[in-house]
Amino acid sequence: MGSSDLERITARRSELDALAEELAKRLQEVEAEREELGIAERVLLRLAEQDRADTEAAGAGIRPTYSMGSVAVGVLHRIKYRAVRPFRRRTALP
């Protein structure tokens, strides 16, 4: 085993370490986005339930109430923004 073999191994280990770091970072981004999507899903389900209740209440002559505020709008805006502009890959994966 020559010196050049050892250098190649060391260089490849360094490349793999950098790749592992990038993948760990991307995994964190994916997990964060999945969490946001879960929140958005719950918000949309709640809004749909509220809309159904409001429709039923309107049929019964009851004035609807609104309990969801700017938080729901902010979450939905972030999800819409990500759909238009998903995170970019900084380096090509082998």
Rank of each mutant, 00 (worst) to 15 (best):
T10S: 10
R12L: 14
A18R: 14
R26W: 04
G69L: 14
A92F: 08
E22A: 07
T65R: 06
I62R: 05
R88I: 11
Q50G: 01
E35F: 12
E7Y: 11
A20F: 15
E35T: 06
A32I: 11
E15T: 09
G2L: 08
E31S: 03
L37Y: 12
Q50I: 06
E56F: 13
D51P: 00
L76G: 00
L37I: 02
R82M: 09
T65Y: 03
L76S: 03
L76H: 03
A60M: 11
A83K: 14
E36L: 15
R63H: 05
R46K: 09
L45N: 06
S67P: 00
L6P: 00
A32R: 07
R82A: 02
R46S: 11
R52P: 00
R78C: 07
S3R: 08
A48Q: 10
A83C: 07
L16P: 01
I39G: 00
R34L: 15
A53C: 02
T10K: 12
L93R: 05
E35D: 07
V71Q: 13
V30Y: 15
G69E: 15
V43Y: 15
E41T: 08
T65S: 05
P94N: 11
V71C: 05
G59H: 09
L76Y: 09
I39S: 02
I9T: 02
V73F: 11
V71S: 08
A48G: 02
R26Y: 07
S70M: 13
L76K: 05
E41M: 10
V84C: 08
S14P: 01
I62E: 10
T91W: 13
R82Y: 03
L6K: 08
E36F: 08
D54C: 09
Q50N: 06
E33P: 01
I39A: 08
L45K: 04
M68K: 15
V71N: 13
T91D: 14
S3V: 11
R82I: 04
I39E: 14
G38D: 11
R13P: 00
A83D: 03
R82G: 00
E36A: 06
V43K: 01
R8Y: 06
V84F: 12
E41R: 06
I62V: 10
R42C: 13
M68P: 01
L6C: 05
I79V: 15
M68H: 10
V84E: 12
Y66Q: 09
S70Y: 14
R42T: 12
V75Y: 02
S4H: 07
R42W: 12
S70Q: 13
R26F: 01
R88C: 13
S14T: 14
M68S: 04
R8M: 05
E22K: 11
E29L: 15
V30E: 10
E56W: 14
D51L: 08
R13Q: 08
R13G: 00
E36M: 13
E49T: 03
S3P: 02
R46A: 07
S14W: 15
I79M: 08
A72N: 01
H77M: 12
Q50W: 02
L23P: 01
I79G: 00
S67D: 08
A24Y: 10
A20I: 05
D17P: 00
V84Y: 03
